[in-house]
């Protein structure tokens, strides 16, 4: 009575990764193989629960026979592939991708590991010029309701929110990329205010945002009043109290208060995604709010 084997390929593919021969299951990506070999690979637009869009290009590696570098997040391994993740070209590109982003986007609220890579790859965004003289994504924050804050000067255009809102999860398509080039941006139709858009406030965009561009209003408000304290937060896994689907919730609490809700992306029920009730319907736990 068990689930039939989902062809977890028995076939192994042999590749050379940084001069070492390793074998990984057929169908693995280069990134999977790197993880298997404990090689730290920076990623921005990749997420376990989303289809790789390979737009950030920070995970690139060198593959023998390829003129350009190759995004490790989406490229499947092939027999005999010779891959280098630590060459000068790779390090230059990774350093530059982070440098380009850091010179145009506020990254002070980005995931800790992103800020770590900027340091470890030696990015120096300042040499692009004074931020007042170069193009940046500086713009006012969008607060249009009591649940979401959209702070697009922190947006690196990783497309994760678009994918989560669209055909990787929610299928609501309230937001999409609009414009082109440096003017490309995440937008509703005609930049309509979020409550007037198709948004159903599932918060799955917030769930996948790596840079703090999309956050719970609770988090935004606490950050503004300097009370947001991740080191003093704990995460408790539980099950949503509403319908009978049984979604897994991670309750982030600080000082006996729920401050935000996420869901584990590796759980078969939710795959990291929730609905408005699961994501925001917790406020009755603190009715005085």
């Amino acid at each position: 009575m068990s689930e039939p084997a989902k062809n977890p390929s028995e076939t192994l593919v042999e590749i050379t990764l940084n001069d070492k021969k390793i074998s990984a299951p057929e169908g693995s990506t280069i990134l999977d193989a790197c993880k298997q070999a404990n090689i730290d690979t920076p990623t921005l637009c990749w997420a376990e629960n989303l289809t790789p869009v390979n737009v950030c290009r920070v995970c690139v590696v060198e593959v023998e026979g390829s003129r350009a570098l190759v995004p490790s997040c989406s490229r499947p391994i092939e027999e005999g592939m010779v891959i280098s993740t630590d060459s000068e070209r790779v390090n230059t590109s990774r350093r530059m991708v982070l440098e380009l982003l850091a010179s145009s986007v506020e990254l002070d609220r980005a995931d800790k590991e992103i800020r770590g890579w900027i340091t470890s790859y030696g990015s120096n965004p300042d040499r692009m010029g004074n931020s007042s003289e170069i193009k940046t994504s500086k713009q006012p924050v969008k607060i249009q309701d009591d649940l979401y804050v959209r702070d697009y000067e922190r947006c690196i255009l990783c497309y994760k929110c678009v994918e989560a809102c669209g055909d990787d999860a929610q299928h609501t398509f309230a937001i999409a990329t609009a414009g082109r080039g440096f003017e490309a941006r995440i937008s509703t139709e005609f930049d309509a205010e979020l409550p007037d858009s198709a948004c159903v406030y599932c918060g799955n965009c917030i769930g996948v945002c790596p840079t703090g561009a999309l956050v719970f209003k609770t988090e935004h408000d606490m950050r503004e009043e300097n009370s947001w304290d991740p080191d003093n937060q704990k995460v408790t896994e539980t099950i949503c109290g509403f319908c009978g689907v049984g979604c897994n919730l991670e309750l982030h609490t600080q000082d006996e208060k729920i401050v935000k809700v996420t869901s584990p992306s590796d759980h078969s029920v939710t795959e990291g995604h929730l609905c408005i009730k699961g994501r925001f319907g917790w406020q009755h736990a603190h009715p005085e709010n």
């Binding site: 737009v55 290009r57 440096f182």
Partner: peptide
């Protein structure tokens, strides 16, 4: 530039 990837967009 279409704006999709970081190296070209920025």
């Amino acid at each position: 530039s279409c704006g999709q990837c970081v190296p070209c967009r920025v």
